[in-house]
Design a protein around this nucleic acid. Structure first.
Lengths: 211, 211
DNA sequence: ACAAAGTTTGACTCTGAGGTCAATATTTGG
DNA sequence: CCAAATATTGACCTCAGAGTCAAACTTTGT
């Protein structure tokens, strides 16, 4: 019982191997996030994910112990990337809360419509996730919501916005933004950019209620 | 080859029997509509429907040739009842387009939140229905949307409303109303009535954009 | 070069849900 | 009361998709 590890019980895997494993996991998560974003969680089977990676289903179980675990991890990846894009945008968009909020909505709907048409269903349609994964999803969503909430609160503080209820406004905004990709999918591609802008304009009305 | 039916091919079932069959079909549709409204289409199996009626799955196939057929028919029942309630409300709510629209939104969200928490997903989340049933669902939704569209158009004509794009406003409104039951489900029952009213107030902002 | 560790495979099981159908029970009308 | 029409059953089929695992293959460190 010296300063050495107790009788080498589990020989720890080398750092290089671990990094490699981490990379592989990221590859899997990216592929899965892409698929879930395109078609939604239930519509994507593990064979689909495996096929996109040119491996077989069995391999996935070497890294993840269930579909739900892979699912939440992948959704987390997607959500992180998404939030990062929004945060970056805010970082480089100065101006009033109104201008910034509009840009944020526009970017968010844009990402949804152009890049991840089915992704938002992952957050909208409640699934009975196992408790542990539920927490992770909630956390993701909270972080994302905070971006919008903060701006709205700033706008209210500065007198630029007026609302009946912050929570309700945020929920409505969120709902409308999440639906956008679904009905935009029916529009000809050319009309989509315009539609996204209109959604942003329209939703700005939610924070400019008459007194 | 007289004026009589050609050699009595299929003896037609008596009127009474037919009425009875119709009733049974309605019972099934009601049970199914209820379940679909509570838990969503995919989450409800035919055994669930059968169980609620105290029969077995097989019986359902005596009346409907597939889950999708029963599904659309049931959704139609639900939608018809729903639209009827909204139409009735409009019939007995006089006033400006603004007042009427607010009442309509309130009623619609109220029905969703209190009576059919999962029903709206049936319309929001696109399913690949067989062509024939798709038409019926579209028709339902059109009829329903018309109620809102008409009022919005009236309000615009009278100068009471201002919008960037009618379609966009309607889509956003619809999306927010449809999500409401889902997030209201997390509220304590006591808070729901208030939440419904707030949604109605908030959404009214969508038709009062600044010029 | 070679053994241990790490990775992938493919064939397998299990389950839930849609759908079928011959046999059986019930209702109807003469 | 009885035969034909109508309704219901329950056992069965099929299929997709989650999950398992021993065996085979590949990489790593010495």
């Amino acid at each position: 019982m010296g300063t050495q590890q107790a009788v080498h019980d589990p020989p720890p895997p080398s750092a290089r191997v671990q990094r490699k494993r981490g990379k592989r996991i990221q590859e899997i998560l990216n592929a899965a996030a892409e698929l879930f974003g395109e078609r939604g969680y239930d519509a994507v089977s593990l064979e689909h994910v495996a096929e996109r990676l040119d491996v077989t289903k069995g391999s996935l179980y070497y890294y993840f112990s269930s579909k739900d675990e892979l699912g939440t991890a992948a959704i987390e990846t997607l959500g992180d990337e998404w939030t990062a894009r929004l945060e970056r945008l805010l970082g480089q968009t100065p101006g009033t809360p109104g201008a910034r909020l509009r840009a944020l909505i526009h970017e968010h709907v844009g990402i949804a419509v152009h890049d991840h048409p089915a992704a938002l269903r992952l957050f909208l349609v409640p699934r009975e996730w196992p408790a542990e994964q539920r927490e992770r999803i909630k956390g993701l969503r909270r972080r994302h919501d905070t971006l919008f909430r903060t701006l709205v609160e700033e706008g209210i503080a500065s007198g630029e916005f007026t609302v009946t209820s912050i929570d309700t406004v945020l929920q409505c905004m969120h709902a409308a933004m999440s639906q956008a990709p679904i009905w935009c999918a029916e529009l000809p591609a050319a009309a989509r950019k315009k539609a996204v802008a209109e959604v942003a304009d329209t939703l700005m009305a939610l924070v400019r209620s008459a007194p």
